[in-house]
């Protein structure tokens, strides 16, 4: 065995670039979090530390608008992610445990379609579609659109997980006279749970995050958080928007933590 002349894995400068990368990713978020604690009503000057804009979000003149928008966003995200996760779980079962079949490639193409079609194109197509069938726009149109584009995001972690589970458990159950249905609900689904939760969380965040499609299909007075924020920031970034953004940042970090913890229990089991 020859002695290595250098550490073959590390390259000079890569650490610095990684730190730069993290700096670029975090600087804007940190700046916004810091400025959300600014006492001044103007974003241009720093007038000392204060929580007034957090109070303003809940009690200020725009609070009703943001509360409604937040409720809409969360209701839509919960329903859309749930339905998309259910659909994706069934589809993944067919794709991973359904043998080889002719429509398999086509089905996979259809499922990943929302990932391939640029968002603006989906938005325009959905608008035209609802318009041509005379579907009144409101919460329901947003919900339907969200369910559709959340499916692939739920599907990916679920099918990945299912491919990682030996089907010997289900075979064993069936050998013990369990029906297919029982094998599915009693064996496969519980084993699938971490994947299903990951899929749900991903779909949930994707729905919560969506601006472009929602903006195209929303009806009168129906705002979600992104459209409400977009409307507000178009007229200039105000401190209360920074407070909302910071809270959403905190919420997102919480979600990632949950998803991380779920995946960790998965490894230990």
């Amino acid at each position: 065995m020859t002695r290595q002349r250098y550490d073959i894995k590390s390259y000079p400068g890569f650490l610095q670039i990684t730190l730069l990368c993290l700096f670029v990713l975090y600087a804007p978020l940190i700046v916004v979090a810091v400025y959300s604690l600014n006492a001044s009503a103007s974003i241009a000057v720093w007038e000392g530390f204060s929580f007034r804009w957090y109070v303003d979000v809940f009690t200020g003149p725009e609070s009703a608008k943001f509360k409604t928008a937040a409720r809409n966003s969360f209701v839509i995200a919960i329903i859309a992610a749930s339905v998309a996760t259910a659909i994706a779980t069934l589809a993944a079962t067919a794709m991973v445990r359904g043998g080889k079949f002719r429509l398999r490639a086509w089905s996979f193409g259809l499922i990943s379609l929302p990932l391939m079609v640029p968002e603006i194109v989906t938005a325009v197509a959905t608008l035209i579609f609802f318009n041509s069938i005379g579907f009144d726009r409101g919460l329901l149109t947003i919900l339907l659109a969200h369910i559709a584009f959340c499916i692939p995001f739920a599907y990916l972690p679920i099918s990945a997980r299912m491919q990682g589970i030996e089907d010997s458990y289900e075979q064993a159950a069936q050998d013990l006279y369990a029906t297919k249905r029982q094998a599915f609900t009693k064996i496969l689904l519980p084993l699938m749970l971490p994947g299903i939760i990951s899929g749900f969380l991903l779909a949930f965040i994707i729905s919560l995050d969506d601006f472009i499609i929602t903006n195209f299909v929303k009806g009168a007075g129906v705002e979600t958080l992104p459209t409400a924020i977009f409307g507000a920031v178009k007229q200039g970034i105000k401190p209360n928007i920074m407070a909302i953004s910071t809270m959403l940042l905190g919420f997102s970090v919480l979600m990632v933590l949950i998803s991380y913890l779920v995946s960790r229990t998965d490894k230990t089991s």
Partner: peptide
């Protein structure tokens, strides 16, 4: 999942 969905639908 289904009960959550049902509850959320009711809310909607």
């Amino acid at each position: 999942l289904l009960t959550t969905t049902a509850a959320a639908t009711a809310l909607l």
